[in-house]
Amino acid sequence: KFNKERVIAIGEIMRLPNLNSLQVVAFINSLRDDPSQSANLLAEAKKLNDAQAP
């Protein structure tokens, strides 16, 4: 279950337009470290993406 959620979360994070490459890598590394947190990490990535919108 967590592996599928992690793959989906990674794909979504990679498509967030307002994150820089270091932020994307940090979120992906966090997902690798704890796949059970996929939903929480994706939500945090989306919040950061929205906050950094031009």
Rank of each mutant, 00 (worst) to 15 (best):
K1A: 14
N3L: 04
K4H: 11
K4I: 11
R6M: 15
V7G: 07
V7A: 14
V7M: 13
A9N: 02
A9M: 06
I10P: 01
G11Q: 14
G11K: 13
G11V: 09
G11P: 01
G11I: 10
E12T: 10
E12H: 07
I13N: 00
I13A: 01
I13V: 03
I13H: 01
M14A: 04
M14G: 05
M14I: 10
R15M: 07
R15D: 05
L16S: 01
L16T: 00
L16D: 00
L16K: 00
P17M: 06
P17R: 08
N18Q: 02
N18T: 01
N18D: 02
N18S: 03
L19N: 01
L19P: 00
N20P: 01
N20E: 03
S21D: 08
S21F: 13
S21I: 13
S21V: 13
Q23G: 00
V24A: 05
V24P: 00
V24N: 01
V25F: 13
V25C: 07
V25R: 11
V25G: 09
V25K: 10
V25E: 10
A26C: 13
A26I: 12
A26W: 09
F27H: 00
F27P: 00
F27E: 00
F27T: 00
I28E: 03
I28A: 03
I28G: 01
N29D: 09
N29Y: 05
N29Q: 11
N29P: 00
N29A: 13
L31E: 01
R32P: 04
D33I: 13
D33W: 08
D34T: 07
P35K: 04
P35F: 10
P35L: 09
P35A: 13
P35D: 05
P35N: 06
Q37F: 07
Q37I: 08
S38A: 09
A39N: 13
A39Y: 11
N40S: 13
L41R: 06
L42I: 06
A43M: 10
A43Y: 12
E44K: 13
E44H: 08
E44M: 13
A45F: 03
A45S: 02
K46F: 07
K46G: 03
K47D: 07
K47L: 04
K47N: 08
L48H: 02
N49F: 02
N49G: 02
D50Q: 12
A51K: 13
A51C: 06
Q52V: 04
Q52Y: 05
Q52W: 04
A53L: 08
A53P: 06
A53R: 10
P54N: 11
